[in-house]
């Protein structure tokens, strides 16, 4: 055992010289900047405030979800159900609003979707010790189905103030910043504080790094996992609500395949699927990175189909660069 640790140390301990340190600190944001500069040569419409505020607004939904996903991934888990949660949240929001005309009740019910799903995930993964892939996979199927069972159609006509949530811009320093972007940064900052500056975050890292060691140090691992998955579910619902506000309607298929982009954002942002590593602002950067690539491809008039191929290649590249970083570091 001791020799194994020694051997591991041998190829993890490298010189930490300053260019690498800065590169490590920037993480994916370094590549966001690099590619933004490269892309600006490809299209004259790319590098300007308006376009970037759109990229960020589009990324905000994924980023809010990726914030929760990052907690899950750091703890060594995965949550496939978030896309379905968004769909189901959207359907519940629409149906309750249509049937009661009470937006507050609708919002509460919509939030409850994510929280209940999260609790179920947490119970299965934490207390039943089921592999999270399977547990959340089961709930993923369930959520997507329930959404369509509830209503197969799109529902709109929300109150004006609710629609503003996703569409308004607020002037900050003479720039009009979309509200969802502000919300995204608020959520990211709050959870970054939770992750890096509070006991809760420390324990998530501990569980991801050495679950048994954390247990021996007195961390209640099942309870912690319950909390993590619940938060993740709640954030997914929250993102779903903002998405409904932005598109001014609810639709039960809205979250289809979202979980994949969200997990990809987290991993691109430096989270390791083995657990124990991850950053909130990295995940935000991951979401921005993906949306930025889709944006430039749109601007260049690349076929939507071709966009998928290119996005796939970039996901692999970004993860490979992370792997390379952690292998060297």
């Amino acid at each position: 055992m001791a020799e194994a640790i020694e051997a591991r140390k041998a190829h993890t301990d490298g010189p930490a010289v300053w260019p690498w340190k800065i590169y490590d600190a920037c993480g994916i944001w370094f590549w966001v900047v690099v590619f933004a500069l490269v892309f600006s040569r490809l299209s004259p419409y790319f590098l300007n405030y308006r376009n970037f505020s759109n990229i960020f607004r589009q990324a905000s939904i994924f980023a809010i979800m990726a914030t929760g996903m990052t907690l899950v991934v750091i703890s060594g888990g995965i949550d496939l159900s978030v896309g379905s949660v968004v769909s189901f949240t959207s359907a519940v929001l629409g149906v309750v609003w249509r049937d009661t005309e009470n937006i507050y009740l609708a919002l509460a019910a919509a939030m409850a979707v994510g929280i209940v799903t999260g609790i179920a995930n947490g119970l299965l993964a934490g207390y039943c010790r089921m592999p999270p892939f399977i547990a959340t996979f089961g709930l993923m199927s369930a959520g997507a189905g329930f959404a369509f069972a509830l209503t197969p159609s799109s529902i709109g006509d929300f109150p004006a103030w609710f629609e503003k949530l996703g569409n308004d811009r607020i002037r900050i320093l003479s720039h009009a910043v979309p509200v969802p972007v502000i919300i995204m940064f608020a959520v990211a900052v709050v959870f970054m504080l939770f992750l890096d500056a509070r006991r809760f975050g420390l324990r998530i890292f501990a569980v991801g790094g050495n679950e048994n060691g954390a247990r021996m140090a007195g961390v209640n691992v099942p309870k912690l996992k319950l909390a993590i998955y619940t938060i993740n579910g709640a954030l997914a619902s929250f993102a779903g609500i903002i998405l409904c506000s932005r598109i001014r309607s609810s639709y039960p298929g809205i979250g289809l395949d979202m979980e994949m982009d969200v997990i990809a954002s987290s991993v691109i942002g430096g989270a390791s699927l083995v657990g124990g590593e991850g950053r909130i602002f990295g995940a935000v950067g991951g979401a921005v990175f993906i949306c930025m690539i889709q944006n430039i491809l749109n601007l260049m008039g690349v076929y939507p189909f071709m966009q998928k191929i290119v996005t796939g290649v970039f996901i692999v590249l970004a993860v490979f660069m992370n792997e390379f970083r952690s292998r060297r570091a």
Partner: peptide
């Protein structure tokens, strides 16, 4: 003090020592 490796390799020395009875300061922050 276990024979098996019970530290979390991804945490710092101080965090490992504090784990389970972390010192909490103002506002509930570490």
């Amino acid at each position: 003090v276990s024979q098996e490796f019970s530290l979390c390799p991804n945490l710092t020395v101080a965090e490992n020592i504090a784990l389970g009875r972390e010192q909490i300061g103002a506002g509930g922050f570490l």
